[in-house]
């Protein structure tokens, strides 16, 4: 699904990723853990195609060079980034936006656009799975949403857009335990043989609910250790200091 080789990324001449390698097969869930400033969010941004980075190395997605695709083309090709801080967009109705977004992605997949009624049905079904009130969906996109609502909205978008590669950037930050469980259930219900996940997190807590197949430790722009869930548990006990 995703092969990254010797990925380097810098912004404003500051090197952040310094030769990162990772390979994710269909159906796998990889967790990347690392201290603040290790390059976790940069990795998420680079995968989504955010501008402003100088990049070298290789990123292959479904066998193709990802660097040729723009942000929206990556989304249309099945890459989904759940933001650490979802952007508030005043004046844009959440419902309408989601329908526009879904129909863009469907079009790219060669599927017919969903009419308002079919969309509403889909939306209601997915929203109720996440305990999202319909009222929230008629509000302006992320405006005045609580931290939990914002993150739930990200997971709702994931479920509606039905991507192949999901990048979760610190999705657990700012969540209480109840919201965390709902989010984790949302992610777990979306796991199957075809979908891959890259879960970026600072704390092991999230991984109690979303069980990774592999855990990697990112430090100073490189993966310095990889292992199973046991590695995350070890980190929780000893902290990053003893590994880095």
């Amino acid at each position: 699904m995703l092969q990254i080789k010797n990925l380097k990324a810098s912004i404003n001449k500051k090197n952040i990723l310094k030769g990162l390698d990772i390979s994710i097969n269909p159906g796998e869930l990889h967790a990347i853990m690392g201290p603040n400033g290790s390059g976790k969010s940069t990795l998420a941004n680079v995968l989504s195609g955010k501008s402003g980075y100088e990049i070298s190395g290789e990123i292959k997605y479904k066998g193709k060079d990802l660097s040729e695709l723009k942000v929206d083309e990556r989304a249309q090709n099945g890459i989904f980034l759940a933001f650490q801080y979802p952007t508030e967009i005043p004046g844009v109705n959440t419902n309408n936006f989601l329908r526009t977004s879904l129909n863009k992605v469907r079009k790219a997949r060669g599927e017919k656009a969903l009419d308002a009624l079919s969309f509403l049905k889909l939306m209601k079904e997915k929203a109720s799975e996440l305990g999202i009130e319909e009222k929230m969906l008629s509000r302006q996109l992320n405006v005045g949403f609580s931290g939990g609502e914002k993150k739930k909205n990200e997971i709702l978008q994931m479920k509606i857009l039905n991507p192949n590669l999901v990048v979760l950037d610190e999705t657990d930050s700012g969540l209480d335990i109840d919201a965390l469980k709902i989010i984790a259930d949302g992610v777990n219900s979306f796991r199957d043989k075809a979908n891959s996940f890259l879960v970026i997190t600072h704390y092991q807590r999230l991984l109690d609910y979303i069980k990774p197949d592999f855990v990697h430790v990112l430090s100073d722009g490189k993966i310095i250790k990889s292992g199973s869930i046991e590695l995350a548990k070890e980190l929780e006990k000893t902290g990053y200091k003893n590994i880095i």
């Binding site: 989504s48 195609g49 955010k50 501008s51 723009k70 942000v71 929206d72 990556r74 989304a75 249309q76 989904f80 980034l81 933001f83 979802p86 952007t87 967009i89 004046g91 844009v92 936006f97 526009t100 977004s101 863009k104 992605v105 790219a108 978008q157 857009l161």
Partner: peptide
Amino acid sequence: YYLMTRGLNRKESTSLL
């Protein structure tokens, strides 16, 4: 950027804003 990560191109995102 947020809108583009959801599949809208730059022009569509700008128009929406």
